[in-house]
Every structure is written in C-alpha cells, then in structure tokens.
Design a binder for these strands. Structure first.
Lengths: 180, 180
DNA sequence: CAGTACTTTCAAAATTTATTGAAAGTTCAA
DNA sequence: TTGAACTTTCAATAAATTTTGAAAGTACTG
C-alpha cells in the first residue's frame, strides 16, 4: 500500500513526461499535475516549495497554463498573493489544448497544402504528377482529421462519438470471439 | 506559378517541422518527405545529394523510417546499393505510427493510472479522495481515447467514422444557419 | 577468399530548448 | 503617493537533443 505522497510524486512525473506531447514543457506540465493532485489551489510560494522550482520558473509555467486555459488565477481576499486553481474538467482541458494547437499548427499546414495543389496542376512531368497525386491524398487525410477535430470541439463528441465507438468495438470483439 | 522544385522544397520543410509531432526527428521526417515527393525510390547517395545530409544521417533516418514501417528497402538487381521506397498509402503510414506510439507511450500511461487508483481507494483524507476522484476522471478520458485509437487501428475507421462525422458536422452547420 | 562497395555505429560537436535568478516592473494597503 | 509585497522578464547558464563523419562492420563479386 503506497501513500498519497508517493502516488502524487509518480503521477506528477508521468504528467511531466506527457507535457511535450501536449505542447508544453515538462516543468509547465509538472505544475499542472501538482495542482490537479491537490485539493485546493495554491500560491506561487506553495508551488515553489512543493516542486522545488525557482520563482521565475513557477511564474512562467503558470502564465503558460493560463494561456492554455488550464489554470485560473484567483485572489484570496485580504492578500496580494495570487492563488492558482487548475481546470479540473479534463475534457474541457483537452478541448482547450486541441483547439489552440489546431489553430496554431494544424490550420496553417492545411492552408499551405491547399496552396500548393493548384500550383502543381499545370505541371506536365510524370514526377510532378506523382507528387501532385500524393499531395492530394495527404490533403484529403489531413482535411478529414481536421473535420473530426472540428466536430470534437463543437461539443461533447467525446460522449456521443466515444460511446458509439465503444459499442462498435465491443460488438466487433464479440463477433470475432464467437467465430474462432 | 511555382515550379515543382520550389513546392517540393517547401513541402519537405513543412514535413520536417511536423516530424517531432509524429515522434521522429526533423531530419528523419525530411527524408520521408523527400521520398514522398519523388516518383521513384532512391539510393542513400541520391538522398544524401538531394537533401545535403551526411551518409550517416541518411542511414540513421532510413533505419528509423523502416522501423516505423514508413519506408521499404528494395534492392536493384545487379547492384549492391539499397533502394529506399516510401510507404505512399498515407492512411497506412498514419496507422503504423499511431499503433507504435500507442504501444510505446499510451499503453504504459493507462497501465500506471490503473495501478494507482486502487492504491488510493483506502486513503481517508479529503486530499486523497479529491486526488483519487481526479485520477478516475483522467483514467476514464484516457481510456476512451484509447478505445477510439483501438477502433481506428482495427480497420478503416477513417472511412466509416470520418464520413459520419463529416455528415454530422455538415448537418449541424446547415441547421444552425437556417435558425439564424 | 580477397578486394571492393556499401552500410552502420557511435563518440564528439553543434544546435536547440529549457531553466534559473537577479533586476525591473507592478500592485496594493496605508 | 510611498514603500513593501509580490510578479514578470530576460540574459546567462544548463540540459537535452540532433547531427556529423571517421572508423568498424558487412556483404557481394569475381
């Protein structure tokens, strides 16, 4: 039986290692993980102490988290010190991240792909035609993922769609099992 | 009107910048992008020349791409030199990557989350209870994404699901427009 | 089986990215 | 308005990652 502190520590490290995947540095992710694992919000000083980070690092991390909509800044009355509160609705957190990254990274990609296709249309060489064909396929695939992301952002697709997929997957498994 | 060489160059740089997102280094992604943009496969020397990379770098990149199932090694008869051919079915390429990353990164995460939950069940403090509750929510969300990935890997969900989503999104848009 | 053509490895160098902490900036109670 | 309390910034430093190329390894040909 492990105690809360041990699990918390492991959890925070796991969360930190997932940071780069979501587009934030490990230190930033660590702060979010730490906040999630605590009952109440925390001040910069508490975070500093809890994670052994410098004041500057905590400040940077919290600002980034606020930009992502993963942390809110509260203010205890009678104090000047800001209190940081994590977004605990993880689905909303996920949506925030997906939305921001889509805008920053995905949309420009799609735009550039769509720019290039007409530019190659008039080229005659086989080489150009093969390249054009591949660009079109890439555009189609990227566009589709884009549409899925769009739907996800426009409301709880996670619920509507996730359930459908779950059921479909379950049915498939059963079907396969009964065959063999 | 831009020529093929210009578009190719831009495309390769875009592809390189997407590399880290998929889990490969920019140099590795650059090689794949270059291969996709060419009609035929290429030898290590041709890649070296085309991308101004060292022999070692090309060798590393191609090995990594082969590990991911994104490049096949052919051998021209009468020559000792290996020819590298890209996987041009991008949906399959995507599936290869998703599968590999899921196994390497996602599955261990889920496993650890599921390990921690029972360890906290017996803790009494409010702090532990709040943390436990959040872990459970995370587990549910991660588990759901996992199921979706699973379905995607088990066959052309991209087609089945992607179309549904597309249609749903289109319907929604229409509905909204007719309201306002 | 020896020679040559090609490939892979890996330690060192270069580059990129993340972190720190001291200084500048901001806010608020009095 | 002032000064203390707190926050942010950013240049310097540290860490991590990527790239290179020379040396070692492998396999094909005659």
């Amino acid at each position: 039986m492990k105690d809360v502190a041990t699990v918390r520590k492991s959890f925070i490290e796991l969360w930190a290692s997932m940071g780069p995947f979501w587009g934030v540095s490990p230190a930033t992710a660590r702060v979010y993980g730490w906040l999630i694992s605590k009952k109440d919000g925390a001040t910069a000083d508490e975070i500093m102490e809890g994670l052994e980070m410098s004041r500057g690092a905590v400040s940077m991390a919290c600002r980034e988290l606020r930009d992502w909509g993963l942390v809110y800044t509260g203010r205890e009355s009678g104090s000047r010190q800001a209190t940081f509160l994590p977004e605990t609705d993880l689905e909303r957190a996920m949506r925030n991240i997906v939305q921001a990254r889509k805008r920053r990274e995905w949309d420009p990609i799609l735009e550039r792909l769509r720019e290039w296709i007409p530019e190659l249309e008039s080229e005659r060489s086989t080489d150009a035609q093969v390249f054009l064909d591949r660009l079109k396929r890439i555009e189609a695939l990227v566009g589709m993922v884009d549409n899925m992301a769009e739907s996800f952002l426009k409301g709880g697709v996670v619920h509507r769609l996730g359930l459908k997929v779950l059921v479909a997957a379950a049915n498939k498994k059963t079907a396969k099992r009964s065959k063999s």
